[in-house]
Amino acid sequence: MKITVVFLGFLMVGSVATDQHKTQADNKTVALPPAHEQPCARDVQAVLRQLTASLAQQKVEMKVLQKENQEQSAKLKELEGQKTQVDKLKQQLQVRQVAFSASLLARGHGFTGPFHALTTLRFQRVITNVGKAYNPHTGVFTPPVRGVYHFEWYIGTPGGHRQPAGAVLYKNSEHIFLAYVHHTSHYGTSSNGATLLLEVGDVVFLRLWPNAKLFDNHNHHTTFSGHLLFTM
């Protein structure tokens, strides 16, 4: 009986030891990752490194492009500024080029006047109007820039008429100079000129002298001209 009990006890101890060893072996097996998963993890890390390097390169390229864009924008602004300056210079040059010349009648022949009061003359046949400062519809010259201007006018009338020929230059409401002629026979002419300092907004025009009349035809005897000498 004692032998039997001892043998059973030995078997039980051996069995427990074997179970413990198996459990430890199982635990070790669970703790280790499967062999086929380890290469995949390394691949993912390699891909992440490549992506990180690619992103860094793209950031560098973006900074380079941003710098180039800034430089191009600065150059574009500089060119736009230069164009603006050129346009201003062109405009100033055009303003400094002012000249006109016109005759009294646009076509045909005949007299203008007489009238009892001073009457503004409209020189309708315009042959030169650089700067568009003279208006043939009103007969008024308006200076586009402050400066010194010179004006000339010529009048004519056939003789044998009671009425004289006369035209007076006005600056705004100021009587400047008069051209006047009265011939009882033959053809008569007269002329005059004036140099004026004008401001922007002034007006210059000719008025027919009261009870006078002017003659004009295809030869254009009666004319009005002016031009800018220099700016001030």
Rank of each mutant, 00 (worst) to 15 (best):
K2R: 12
I3F: 10
V5L: 13
F7P: 00
V13I: 15
V16Q: 06
V16F: 10
D19Q: 15
K22H: 09
A25H: 13
V30L: 13
A31V: 12
P33E: 02
P33M: 09
A41H: 08
A41T: 06
A46G: 11
V47R: 11
Q50W: 06
Q50P: 02
A53K: 07
S54Q: 15
L55W: 10
Q57M: 13
M62R: 12
Q66T: 12
K67I: 03
E71L: 12
Q72S: 08
S73H: 12
K75L: 15
L76K: 12
E80D: 11
Q82M: 04
Q85W: 03
K88N: 08
L89E: 14
K90W: 07
Q92W: 01
R96H: 03
F100R: 03
S101Q: 13
A106I: 10
R107S: 15
G108C: 04
G108F: 07
H109K: 14
H109S: 15
G113S: 03
F115A: 02
F115I: 00
L118D: 05
T119L: 01
R125Q: 10
T128Q: 07
T128N: 08
N129S: 07
V130W: 07
K132P: 00
P136S: 09
T138E: 09
F141R: 03
T142P: 01
F151P: 07
G160H: 02
Q163C: 07
A165N: 06
V168H: 09
K171I: 00
N172S: 00
S173C: 04
E174A: 10
I176K: 13
F177T: 08
L178W: 01
H182F: 09
H183C: 03
H183Y: 06
T184Y: 13
H186G: 15
G188T: 02
T189K: 09
N192P: 03
L197F: 15
L198Y: 08
V200E: 11
G201H: 01
V203E: 05
V203P: 00
V204P: 00
R207I: 00
N211A: 02
H218T: 05
H218Q: 02
H221V: 01
T222Q: 01
F224T: 02
G226Q: 00
T231F: 09
M232T: 11
